[in-house]
Design a protein around this nucleic acid. Structure first.
Lengths: 130, 130
DNA sequence: GTCTATACGGATAAATTTGTCCCTATTGAA
DNA sequence: TTCAATAGGGACAAATTTATCCGTATAGAC
């Protein structure tokens, strides 16, 4: 279960609510891979190896609570669960796909500046400690 | 200055790098308002009242380091600074605008489910403490 | 019997992000 | 002379997010 917030979010404009439902390290990827047909939790975990199982579950729960995905539990053993996009979730996919394409298009440049930014921070730290 | 990360991010796909440069509570809004013509830090702070000045500065620094915006410092007193989108930053604007429109279009529904999700969490807590 | 796969979440720790409070500087206005 | 506006950041605290470790449960394969 997600943790309760002490500070209430403001929900004044579209970007506010967008942030609430999409702000989470793996949420965009989860929607992306669900849309690609990877519906079961285990599959999603194998697609997103850097994320822990626990956190993916929490973020899936939030996506479900925010009605971007639905969860279908099959009464079987071993257990089987499938996630699907809701209509609202599907309506977001063109934008998420565009984000992915934008990232792909700028990946080299961005990887470089991200790494450079990390180095610059290190420099500052080194100067400080001398 | 942003804090140094201990865990290195993976930058394998477009969505990875996208997350690195756009993951920050106010970054999308900053780009949005800079694109709207609110270029000076003070203006941006007045547009985004919920954010503290300190954090906006840090996220602006990151956007600059990631080359989505440029910063122009005018050698004046009192100081004057203006941010502008880079070409790469501009190329992101259609998508950010689409995100804003999506949020606007679903704002009522999403506000409702966000609030409902918060209530459900509270319920769970109440049951636990009895 | 033991191991794997499936799925879930509590308790807790670590990392990260965000916010608060304080300080620096200078110009011009009241 | 004091105050507001301008911009920035250090030190620190709080909130939030993410990760780790452990435990539940059952069917089937070996």
């Amino acid at each position: 279960m997600a943790y309760k917030k002490k500070i209430q979010p403001s929900l004044n404009c579209g970007l506010d609510v967008l942030g609430e439902v999409l702000y989470g390290k793996w949420k965009i990827r989860l929607l992306y891979f669900i849309n690609q047909g990877h519906k079961r939790p285990g599959e999603l975990q194998r697609q997103i190896l850097d994320a822990s199982r626990r956190v993916l579950n929490m973020q899936l729960n939030e996506l479900e609570a925010h009605e971007l995905v639905t969860k279908k539990i099959f009464p079987q053993l071993p257990p089987k669960v499938e996630y699907s996009l809701t209509t609202m979730g599907e309506s977001l996919m063109p934008i998420i796909n565009a984000l992915g394409q934008w990232g792909d298009a700028h990946q080299e440049k961005l990887s470089a500046v991200i790494r450079q930014a990390a180095i610059n921070e290190t420099k500052v730290i080194l100067i400080k400690t001398e």
